[in-house]
Each structure stands twice: as structure tokens, then as C-alpha cells.
Amino acid sequence: MEQFLEGKTALVTGSVQGIGLAIAKALGRAGARIAVHGLADPDQAAKACAEIEAAGAPQARFFEADMREPETIEAMMEAIAEWGGADILVNNAGIQHTVPLAEATPAIWDTVLAINLSGAFHTMRLALPTMADRGYGRVINIASVHGLVASVHKSPYVASKFGLVGLSKVAALEYADKGDRASGGITVNCICPGWTETTILEPQINASAAEHDGDREAGIRKMLAEKQPSGRMSAPDEIAELALWLSAPVAHNLTGTAIPVDGGWTTQ
């Protein structure tokens, strides 16, 4: 594979599993050093780094930060700056809490918004100026289909993802004229997955399976029938390939978008 990210460094938040890990592997395969982040003990962090290096990354190093705490994000970004700085920033860390609006406590609201939206704001405000100085930078925010359409019982999550899409559009406009075709320019985009095979969906899959006598596949089919016309989930690797393409020089003029990968969900 072409090593078009050789010499670049990518920070992927929430990259010890799922979509984040798949993206880290894909970017590493193209030659990028990977700053790994997530909720992980030392063994889990080391395992993720080893997997990413085995996929082809020249180096993978774990950086710790609580995405609810701006001070720890600032410390992480400073440490990454000393390591070389993030040429590519993938904000993937996120949580979901399913609850009716009337039962969503201030604590639930604050936590979901802090991790899903404010955390991305802090990494972006600290990374983008250096990207502009270099003439190349990619911010890829993993939003959700719920950054484009709503669902019941997900008010904090939907609000955070709609906010992430809006934040990304503003940043895209502010940095659109930095760099050029030769340097790669600065782009800011969102990927908006629909149903994707990740651990965050396990509670919903299990609940749906329980309604079908424990049949997991039947439960998944029922979930997808309600929303995703293709009837197929996406795999994390498929989301990763889109993130990889968005990082390529050829994508220099694609910015400010929110790209659904949802089997037709938002087309309805």
C-alpha cells in the first residue's frame, strides 16, 4: 500500500477498540505514527499499540486523558506536540446513554456532552493552529447518524452529535483557505455511521435478541428493519477506510461534510 502518510502523526481518541482501533490501524498502515488514547489499563493500552504496529504503523504510543476534563486534554495535547504534533486528529471517543428526556439527569447530560462534544472542541482548538502552520491537517470527527436525524430516548447523545457536526462545519470554514493542493490543505469532516458492529450497541442488540428468544441474528434484523434499509450493519474496518481516504492528499477539497454510512437510513 502507498505510504502517503509517512512522516505524519495521527491522534485517534478512543482507539483501544472498535471503530477507533480500526481507524488507527488503517492510518498506521499508510505510514502514520499513531497516538493512541482510550479507557485502558496498561495491558490493554500495550495490546492496542502492539496491534496497531503489527498493522504497519511505524510507531504507536499511548496517551492518557479524561475527555471530561479540559486540563487533562491540554496535557495530552502538549505531550503529543512534544512527540511531533498531530497532523491528523480523529475524534472518536464517545459514550451513549439511552434515557427518556424527562429522566435524563444533569449528570447524564453533562457527561455525554463533555465527552462527545466538548472533548472534540478542546482537541480541535489545540491541534488546528499547528496544522494551519504546516499547510496540512485532517480533522475527522466520528459523529453518528444521530448527528443528522433524531431518535427517541437519546436526547443528550443526539444533542452532542448534532453539535459535533455544527462545530466541524465552523472549523472547516475557518481553515478552508489554509495550505494548498501541494501541501494538502486543512479539512474538517464528520463521518456519521449508522448501525455498526461495536460494543456500544451490545445492550440494544441483547435487548432486541431477548424479544426473539435469545436469537441474536433475529434481534439484529429487527433493529435494522426499523432504521437501516440495507439490512446490513457496517464493520469498523469499513468506517476506517473512509477515514483513510479523507486523510489522503486527493481529499484536499472535501471539507465541512457530514458523510452518512448508514445503509440509506437518512435517505428516508
Rank of each mutant, 00 (worst) to 15 (best):
C49A: 04
C49L: 04
C49S: 02
C49D: 00
C49W: 00
C49N: 04
A50P: 07
A50D: 13
E51K: 00
I52R: 02
E53H: 02
E53S: 00
A54Q: 10
A54M: 11
A55M: 01
G56V: 06
G56R: 10
A57Y: 00
A57H: 01
A57V: 03
A57P: 03
A57R: 00
P58C: 00
P58G: 02
P58L: 01
P58H: 00
Q59A: 09
A60L: 10
R61L: 09
F62R: 05
F62Y: 12
F63W: 09
F63A: 03
E64M: 13
A65M: 08
D66S: 05
D66P: 07
D66M: 08
D66E: 11
D66C: 15
M67I: 13
M67K: 14
M67S: 11
R68H: 12
R68Y: 07
R68P: 06
E69S: 13
E69K: 13
E69C: 15
P70A: 03
P70I: 02
E71L: 07
E71A: 06
T72Y: 11
T72E: 08
I73Y: 04
I73W: 03
I73F: 06
E74V: 15
A75G: 12
A75E: 08
A75N: 08
A75K: 10
M76L: 13
M76T: 03
M76Y: 07
M77R: 05
E78Q: 14
E78V: 08
A79F: 07
A79S: 07
A79P: 03
A79W: 05
A79N: 06
I80F: 10
I80R: 06
I80Y: 04
I80A: 05
A81Y: 08
A81E: 08
E82D: 14
E82M: 14
E82F: 14
E82K: 15
W83C: 12
G84E: 01
G84M: 03
